[in-house]
Design a protein around this nucleic acid. Structure first.
Length: 274
DNA sequence: TTTACTGTTGCAGT
DNA sequence: AACTGCAACAGTAA
């Protein structure tokens, strides 16, 4: 489910559900999802208490007493909660956290792309640094001058570059198409061909669209119901994503779809020229 | 039935 | 170093 707004919605739900609760038992139906070792994660987590639930980009951080679990939902990861003992059988349930309040937190992931890692508290900074994560998409963190100089130094196509999470974190395939459309920038434009006015617009729209989507609690696209992050209404506000063949809200030209860096990309061919 | 597509990331190849 | 394609996996739609 995740781009930043959906992950933030999940974070908020987990915060309400988990903080202050302790972990009685952890088990995995799909141990390979734990990159640092399922047995070790379970052993270290049992008996600990959730102190806070944080987010960095599209990563969730579950703070325990001495450790932090880094959870990435990738394409389809979800969290669910059931009364312990009433967890239904489901072949896509991969992780189970039995809590002190008699509930079980379940991690569900049809495609099994999602991961968990157990770090010692404090190691997460190095973890994100190693991945070269960019700033959060806020006016406080996301510096326009830095963004501009990095774009002007690169020949990469703008859309794949924005998806790298190194210029700024949080954009995925939905919101990057929305930001590019709002900025009238074609996804294949070389970064160093962008005018200062276009860069400023990309910067503003990235902050603005992701903030709006957080406010709308994310988009619910082609997913099941009843899981954190799937109560969003942002899909009703999308201008181009998933609207192939429909009219551009600005000029009425038919929205077209092309492949950019292997990802389906929605553009208005009149508003967004190469 | 086959093929292409899907809200992600990281790796192997050139 | 910079770029591309693809793999991890399962389901759905054409």
């Amino acid at each position: 489910m995740p781009e930043l707004p959906e992950v933030e919605t999940v974070r908020s739900g987990l915060e309400d559900l988990l903080v202050g609760k302790s972990i009685v038992n952890v088990s995995f139906a799909y141990p390979r999802m734990v990159l640092t070792g399922a047995d070790q994660l379970a052993q270290l987590a049992e008996g600990q208490t959730f102190q806070a639930i944080r987010r960095r980009g599209k990563y969730l951080l579950l703070d325990l007493d001495e450790h932090v679990i880094i959870s990435h939902l990738r394409m389809e990861g979800k969290y669910l909660s059931f009364p312990s003992g009433q967890v239904p059988a489901n072949k896509h349930f991969h992780a189970f956290f039995d809590l002190s309040d008699g509930t079980t937190l379940v991690y569900q992931d049809v495609r099994k792309f999602g991961t968990m890692e157990m770090l010692v508290k404090g190691e997460e900074e190095a973890y994100f640094q190693a991945r070269k994560l960019g700033p959060e998409p806020t006016v406080e963190e996301f510096d326009l001058a830095t963004f501009k100089s990095r774009l002007q130094a690169s020949k990469k196509s703008i859309k794949p570059y924005l998806l790298e999470q190194t210029l700024v974190v949080g954009l995925g395939n939905i919101y990057v198409d929305e930001v590019l459309w709002a900025s009238r920038v074609h996804p294949l434009r070389p970064s160093n061909s962008l005018k200062p006015s276009e860069i400023k617009c990309l910067h503003e729209q990235t902050i603005g669209i992701l903030a709006l989507a957080v406010e709308k609690r994310g988009s619910t696209i082609r997913s099941y119901k009843n899981a954190f992050g799937e109560i969003g209404t942002m899909q009703d506000f999308l201008k181009v994503y998933g609207r192939t063949g429909q009219a551009c809200p600005r000029c009425q030209t038919s929205i077209s779809k092309l492949k950019v860096g292997g990802r389906g990309s929605h553009i208005c061919p009149k508003c967004q020229k190469i």
